[in-house]
Amino acid sequence: MEKALEEFGVVGDAMDIPGLDFYKEDISGIGVVVKKSVHGKWIAHDILALVDRGVIQRDTFRFILVSDDLPDCAKLISPED
């Protein structure tokens, strides 16, 4: 994995990334948190590709949360103020 990352800037197979072996378990309804909307689009594409290839089930992921699109913490804690 490190060699592919150094050489090409990407990993050729997501299954080579440590910690992303959730596909081995029967997990559903998990989410992904990203910083920017463009990253959310990339992740959505990757998730759909994994579903299409049969690597993960359709219900493995439930949401993608874009942190830049969230209001600041004060508004989340006290929305009435």
Results as ranks from 00 to 15, higher is better:
5 L>M: 14
5 L>Y: 14
5 L>R: 15
6 E>I: 13
8 F>Y: 11
9 G>T: 05
10 V>W: 12
10 V>Y: 15
10 V>E: 10
11 V>L: 12
11 V>G: 06
15 M>T: 13
16 D>Q: 14
16 D>A: 14
17 I>T: 09
21 D>E: 14
22 F>C: 02
22 F>I: 06
22 F>L: 07
24 K>C: 03
28 S>G: 02
29 G>Q: 05
31 G>W: 05
32 V>L: 12
36 K>D: 02
38 V>P: 00
38 V>E: 09
39 H>R: 09
40 G>S: 10
41 K>N: 06
43 I>M: 12
44 A>I: 01
44 A>H: 07
44 A>K: 14
45 H>R: 14
50 L>N: 08
50 L>F: 08
52 D>G: 06
52 D>Q: 15
53 R>G: 01
55 V>Y: 09
55 V>S: 02
57 Q>P: 00
59 D>H: 08
60 T>F: 04
61 F>G: 04
63 F>I: 02
65 L>W: 05
66 V>F: 06
66 V>C: 08
67 S>Y: 13
67 S>F: 14
67 S>L: 15
67 S>G: 05
67 S>E: 08
68 D>F: 05
69 D>Y: 08
70 L>M: 15
73 C>R: 13
75 K>W: 09
76 L>A: 12
76 L>H: 11
76 L>I: 15
77 I>P: 02
77 I>C: 07
